[in-house]
């Protein structure tokens, strides 16, 4: 493991996946963190609390947080087959695959296809209907808010399972905070009805074309989208044996 990622725990690469710190930096020299991957934020300091005084001496350290970046072919396993079939099927439909599939990421033995949001319904329908793909089961959508991912702050992540071929892939679609619209795929996967409502409820992603996009967990008149990163957790300090314990989001946290 590279000595510079400040992580005692992060000593393994995922089975079958690439660990950008391990596999691509063959020399593994300190301070040679790769510039690959997708920057989603900046981490300051090395250890110790980030809202107290710097006692570690590493307070000036600034590192970028990077998610695993695009992978090059061959992806390995059935991933190549899925990618080939999907690209071929989209091509047949008159859609340039490169326009729809922004990038493919293989990480920790999982295959993620980043899809341009305007093409999501067509890609989903192709993945469902093409006999060689046949992803019958959509396990819903999970929203993720990356405030540091400029212009693509809101991500919607779909996991598709093929019972026929016994495969699992992930689709990831992003939208900017300023225009939080992603086409709904309820038409293709009716199971996403409640899932999209939930993601709308918590992240404010507007799924265009959803039959009734209303709040599902929070009260109908709730303001704001609770699982966005800028939304506070809330809570009050509690007293325990004479000491004040601050609310969870006010407690000391570590960089």
């Amino acid at each position: 493991m590279s000595a510079d990622n400040g992580s005692g725990a992060a000593n393994g690469s995922g089975a079958g996946g690439t660990n950008p710190d391990k596999d691509l930096n063959v020399q593994n020299l300190p301070g040679q963190r790769g510039d690959h991957g997708e920057v989603i934020g900046v981490r300051r300091g090395m250890f110790g609390p980030n809202n107290g005084g710097d006692t570690s001496g590493y307070g000036g350290l600034v590192r970028s947080v990077r998610l695993p970046g695009a992978s090059a072919r061959p992806y390995g396993g059935y991933f190549d087959e899925v990618a080939d079939e999907l690209e071929g099927a989209l091509d047949e439909q008159g859609l340039v695959p490169e326009n729809a599939i922004e990038k493919a990421v293989v990480d920790r033995g999982e295959f993620t296809l980043h899809i341009a949001r305007e093409h999501l319904p067509q890609v989903a329908k192709t993945l469902r209907d093409d006999p060689a793909l046949r992803f019958e089961l959509c396990t819903g959508v999970s929203g993720v808010h990356y405030p540091g991912d400029q212009g693509r702050e809101l991500h919607a992540v779909y996991h598709l399972r093929s019972i026929t071929h016994n495969r699992l892939i992930r689709l990831e679609v992003s939208a900017p905070d300023a225009d939080p619209h992603i086409p709904s795929i309820v038409e293709v996967y009716p199971t996403n009805d409640w899932h999209e409502r939930e993601t709308y409820d918590f992240f404010g992603i507007v799924f265009d074309g959803h039959p009734a996009l209303t709040r599902i967990m929070m009260p109908d008149d709730w303001q704001g989208f609770p699982q966005r990163k800028d939304y506070p957790l809330g809570g009050i300090p509690v007293e325990y044996k004479g000491a004040q314990i601050p609310a969870p989001d006010q407690r000391r946290s570590y960089s």
């Binding site: 990622n5 400040g6 992580s7 005692g8 725990a9 992060a10 995922g14 660990n19 710190d21 991957g37 989603i40 947080v65 990077r66 998610l67 695993p68 990480d107 920790r108 999982e110 993620t112 089961l137 396990t139 819903g140 999970s142 993720v144 992540v157 996991h159 399972r161 699992l168 992930r170 570590y254």
Partner: peptide, 23 residues
């Protein structure tokens, strides 16, 4: 606590009610 390298993972188990997935 310990640090976990950046990235995402999906793990699913067959719960008594069906597919329980964690993203």
């Amino acid at each position: 606590g310990f640090r976990v390298p950046p990235g995402q993972a999906y793990a699913a188990v067959e719960s008594p009610k069906g597919e329980l997935g964690v993203h």
